[in-house]
Write a protein that binds this DNA or RNA. Structure first.
Lengths: 189, 189
DNA sequence: CTTCGTTTGTTCGATATCCCACAAAACGCA
DNA sequence: TGCGTTTTGTGGGATATCGAACAAACGAAG
């Protein structure tokens, strides 16, 4: 059913995103101009307006693009058409995803980054964790909403810390340790 | 006077060139298909035919593009509009050019490369050297054509050897040594 | 406050690239 | 040799991107 997007659109959007992200890594968001983005993306200025109404819209679309990739990277589609939850075995896929796009997340989460991004990211992680958390056993007697907030904040916090520290620890270690902590708290498995 | 080429054309040509060059570095030229080039360049197959009649034409245009850049890299335009011959001071610009595009020259000059490329490159270098060689003093009594062929072959040979040996020597050394040899033979200065 | 350069949206017509489809040619293989 | 598959050119219609121009809003400097 899904109509594949025109090749030109995909290429242009990618170029604009990359230009935008690299600029965010260099200077304050407010001081970035559409002209700069167009120059660096090697795209006509009008083309940007063809896709986005202004730079705030571009920022929104950019955030949603990456965050939606983030939330789908842990679920694959089996050959039977069923969606498989990779979180049942390992955190490596999503950790690798963060590693692969660390430039983006670093820009968005750094001091001069976008405060609303962390908020949006937390929302999405919270929604995902809410579907995973198991309220039996140790979690009995706790508020599910509170437990979910607790775990989501912890998860995002660790990711943020890892990214901001230039991924000083190997992804495998992050994955296994996070996995252990989440399992211990009945978020997964 | 020069009309600037459309942004789309420049981007597409560059993408096609890069895809083509990387393929040449991997497999025999004859076994490369237009489909492969289009796929890797992320460009519609018809777009390639819009620019080139077939893959031989593409090869020609690609060669000419790089070789013309090679022959102009040593001449800059001063603010008075005069063309300045950089060869009067150093070989570094052209050596750096080869270093920058070594992937291309490696592909073209390697065993599985394009034999006609070396021939074409030699022609252009020969023409350039013919305008520089000084037939006075030691070169008196020699055939100018023979001296030119001698020097051009030597120059191309050194570049070829340097590229094929993965640029094992630093560019500065290549530049100064070549410079010394050419000067000693009254090709420059 | 005024001036001047820059940025912003928006419009227009031109065109490069898109996708799709087709027939002929070339190819790989039994 | 024959036969299915892939590649090659080529065409038509749709559309994304182009360059250029414009007026309005903005910002910095005098």
């Amino acid at each position: 059913m899904e109509v594949k997007t025109d090749r030109r659109i995909a290429k242009t959007r990618e170029a604009i995103f990359q230009a935008f992200i690299s600029l965010i890594g260099e200077k304050n968001f407010e001081s970035i101009t559409i002209n700069e983005i167009a120059d660096r993306a090697n795209v006509n200025r009008g083309t940007i307006y063809f896709h986005y109404s202004d730079k705030y819209d571009l920022l929104d679309k950019c955030m949603e693009e990456y965050l939606s990739k983030m939330s789908t990277v842990s679920t694959a589609t089996g050959q039977d058409g069923e969606t498989v939850d990779l979180l049942e075995s390992s955190l490596m896929p999503i950790i690798r995803y963060f590693q692969e796009h660390h430039a983006f997340y670093l820009s968005m989460l750094s001091n001069q980054g976008i405060p609303s991004f962390r908020k949006r990211m937390l929302e999405i992680v919270t929604a995902s964790i809410a579907t995973h958390v198991d309220m039996e056993d140790q979690n009995q007697g706790y508020s599910k909403e509170l437990v979910t907030q607790f775990m989501a904040s912890a998860f995002v916090g660790v990711i943020e810390w890892w990214i901001l520290s230039e991924m000083s620890q190997p992804p495998e270690e992050i994955s296994t340790q996070l996995w252990g902590l989440l399992k211990r708290n009945q978020v997964i498995r």
